[in-house]
Computed example of a mutant assay.
Amino acid sequence: MGMISEFKEFIARGNVIDLAVAVVIGAAFGKIVTALVDGIVMPVIAALTGGVSVDDWKYVVTPQQLDASGKEVVAELSIRYGLFLQSVIDFVLVAFVIFLVLKAYNRMRKPAAEAPAATPEDVLLLREIRDSLRAR
């Protein structure tokens, strides 16, 4: 029974619940950014590259071969670097937006300017001794 009660205590802590909420929100946010990339950013890039979608960018190692009837005999062997590039763009945009959100959050969370710490008593005493020695 000890392990179950420890597990309940672990789950009941605020940090675990906050982490679970963050994961769910992060997954939903990832979908939003992916929709932004797929719906807005990639069509602009495709327009700049002559209508070719980034997803279609590839290096063909072995081209597809068809027989006389048009049936595929040998499948195309290609390195699809466009998919990787799209994933990189997704990641960079997600990271940038999270950076902006955290920057705004930290700015709002920043405490008011703290008063300077009081000078320790021993330093004050040393200053008094120094000033009295100078006066002589």
Rank of each mutant, 00 (worst) to 15 (best):
S5K: 15
S5W: 10
S5V: 14
S5M: 06
E6V: 15
E6A: 14
F7V: 12
F7H: 04
K8I: 15
I11Y: 05
A12W: 08
A12Q: 11
R13P: 09
R13H: 15
G14C: 02
G14F: 13
D18W: 13
L19C: 12
L19V: 10
V21T: 06
V21M: 13
V21L: 13
V23L: 08
G26I: 11
G30Y: 05
G30F: 08
V33N: 11
T34K: 15
A35Y: 12
V37I: 14
G39M: 05
V41M: 05
P43K: 15
I45T: 01
L48Q: 02
L48F: 13
T49R: 07
G50Y: 03
G50H: 06
G51Y: 01
G51L: 00
V52Q: 13
S53D: 08
S53Q: 05
D55M: 06
V60I: 15
T62H: 03
T62I: 15
T62A: 04
T62M: 11
P63I: 00
P63H: 00
Q65I: 15
Q65A: 12
L66P: 05
D67K: 03
A68Y: 05
S69W: 07
G70T: 10
K71F: 06
E72H: 00
E72R: 11
E72V: 15
E72M: 13
E72A: 10
L77A: 09
L77E: 07
I79R: 00
Y81W: 09
Y81Q: 01
G82V: 09
G82I: 03
F84T: 09
L85Q: 05
Q86D: 00
Q86G: 02
I89V: 02
I89K: 04
I89E: 03
D90Y: 13
V92A: 00
L93Y: 00
A95L: 13
I98V: 11
F99M: 06
L102M: 10
K103V: 06
Y105Q: 04
N106Q: 08
R107Y: 14
M108E: 00
K110S: 06
K110G: 00
A113E: 11
A113S: 07
E114S: 12
E114R: 12
P116I: 08
A117G: 01
A118W: 07
P120Y: 03
P120W: 03
P120T: 00
V123N: 02
V123F: 04
L124M: 03
L126M: 13
E128S: 14
E128F: 12
I129E: 11
R130A: 10
D131T: 13
A135S: 07
R136D: 08
R136L: 09
